[in-house]
Design a protein around this nucleic acid. Structure first.
Lengths: 343, 343
DNA sequence: TTGAAAGCGCTAACAG
DNA sequence: CTGTTAGCGCTTTCAA
């Protein structure tokens, strides 16, 4: 194996000290043009690559970002396999990270200790949290003094961190309004554990708001809660809805993937979408293109959410911002074929 | 910010030298039980976390694995957004990596230089390649002397690296046999640039084999080649197939996502699956659950492919293997509702 | 069985 | 403007 080219090799070849090389490499402006010239020449000749590990050690900065994902069944596998929401967002983060010469480290976390030690061991410069974690985790991390970005967080304690989200209530409202305007008077809401998941709770709340605004009784809504937000759960809920003989004409699902599961269940039982049920989803992920009929949904730009999150944390790391940043990204209803006007 | 706890703090508290602490931490067996005891006690008391960066610098080993993904349109975004094949596989890698205390770094590469410098800068211990890259890249990397795992590679030069793949030709053969046994005598193959993508070429070749074996003329197959393997391309190809007035009764698509695009195109033009066309896909990704009718496909365990790849590279890093390992994982045909027997 | 000390490659006072 | 030098936190000879 070839010997690694170090800053000293460059220094020697350029006939200067390693400090000078370091200055040049880091663009510290106190080196004469002439010397710079020589150094650059030597760098090119040797194909010198500064070692991030060493930089990291001496600067206490790794240029690495940690991305925390929730475990499902003690593993991240289901996340990667089925949570297209997260992978799409990670795509956005990656693009910004690379542009700024950061690398992304992705991990699931068991307990706060684990997480903290991961950050310490790897010298991570910042942390992005996808999903909900126990408050103790954030508490534990406070002492680390690195920027933290929370996505879709509504917790009180979350306010002291950077926050990137959308207006979930507005999303629910738009969905509700869309259905009500099309004559639906009995709507089923299908979401994930409303008591514990503020995102779904807010979406359902938006629906309620639309119903109230239209001067309908809130009985117009039937609530179904699953224990998760997967295709299978959607399928389960759809089946349940039929079994219960629910009389609603429209369904608002708190995520696209849930909606797809519901649609499958309904279609398998001979129901036609949108003839028998109008359905609205949420997110507008890339998988939507697969769905037939095309899914009417509340579109959020998930990729961009990743972009903004990564940019926020990098800005924070590089001291361009200090106070917690709270960003609310825009959403819109996209009408496709899964909803219809009730005659 | 709290001062970082170093090995010296532990040493001091335990009343030993830092070298001794290092021995204990690394399980180097030349420390008396008694001293070990004291050291462990001190570690616990201080909640000492060895710093990977420092370890990395002094051992020249980072415990980080690089995963290279191909760029699409100069970005990884489409990969994360739509290539469920890769994300599913990354899930598998992550699980093994974490178990072995490795972290995964994911990157796209522009040119060989870039890649090499990434490895050098980050001190990566190993590299996994998803997809096809120019040969020059691998050449460039040779001098780095780190283990490299290639996924789905059929190139001649790939033989000197570790290789994880399936028998793609067998897959094509199984698909073809399935269709032929069900009475289909005119089959369209839809794949990605056969001249340059051996995976698709092998799959099509398997189909040919089945056709030949059944003593049919190879005219029985019509080939369609798209420039990619996405839903959109599938849609495009499906449309084209109809426009050409192709008389085939069955379609073998070289990936599920392609198949879904094809199905969408056909269904939109009023064709019924499997009544008008029987369709077989390839991979059996999680998105398949969305498809209606359920897609008959060649199932490979993509998650497991990630697992095996990661395990292989870790074994190589830790010197448990030396010669290039070539693994061929098993596949099977999964029959669902998208294929039918021709009467 | 333990410790002193010289690195690993780079940065950043400080001195000149 | 440039160089000297002391770290960053850990490993690993080598000697005791």
């Amino acid at each position: 194996m070839k010997q690694k080219i170090t800053i000293r090799d460059v220094a020697k070849l350029a006939g200067v000290s390693s400090a000078t090389v370091s200055y040049v490499v880091n663009g510290i402006n106190k080196v004469s043009e002439e010397t710079k010239e020589k150094v650059f020449e030597a760098i090119k000749q040797l194909d010198y690559q500064p070692d991030f590990t060493a930089i990291s050690l001496s600067k206490r900065k790794s240029n690495m970002l940690g991305v925390m994902m929730p475990f499902v069944d003690n593993s991240l596998a289901p996340m990667f396999r089925e949570n297209y929401y997260y992978t799409e967002m990670i795509g956005g983060m990656e693009s910004i990270a690379r542009k700024n010469k950061y690398d992304l480290l992705i991990s699931g976390v068991r307990d706060p200790q684990d997480c903290k030690s991961w950050v310490t061991k790897r010298n991570l410069d910042g942390l992005i949290f996808l999903g909900l974690f126990p408050e103790a985790l954030y508490e534990e991390l406070k002492s680390l003094d690195i920027p933290i970005v929370l996505i879709d967080n509504y917790e009180e304690f979350g306010k002291s961190y950077h926050n990137i989200r959308i207006d979930d209530e507005l999303g629910g409202y738009l969905a509700g309004k869309h259905l009500i305007e099309r004559g639906h008077r009995a709507i089923s809401f299908i979401g994930h554990d409303l008591a514990n998941f503020p995102v779904d709770w807010n979406r359902s709340n938006g629906l309620k708001k639309a119903v109230t605004e239209a001067k309908l009784s809130t009985d117009a809504i039937t609530f179904f809660e699953g224990k998760g937000s997967s295709f299978e759960i959607g399928y389960e809920m759809g089946t349940k809805l039929l079994e219960l003989g629910d009389k609603s004409t429209a369904i608002f699902a708190s995520s696209d993937i849930l909606a797809m599961g519901i649609i499958k269940a309904l279609q398998e039982r001979g129901k036609e979408i949108p003839h028998d049920y109008s359905i609205v989803g949420f997110d507008d992920l890339a998988i939507n293109m697969i769905s037939r009929p095309g899914l009417t949904t509340i579109r959020q730009d998930v990729f961009n959410k990743g972009v903004v999150s990564a940019q926020t944390i990098i800005d924070a790391i590089e001291q361009k911002i200090s106070d917690p940043v709270h960003v609310t990204l825009s959403i819109e209803l996209v009408e496709r074929e899964s909803t219809r006007r009730l005659e």
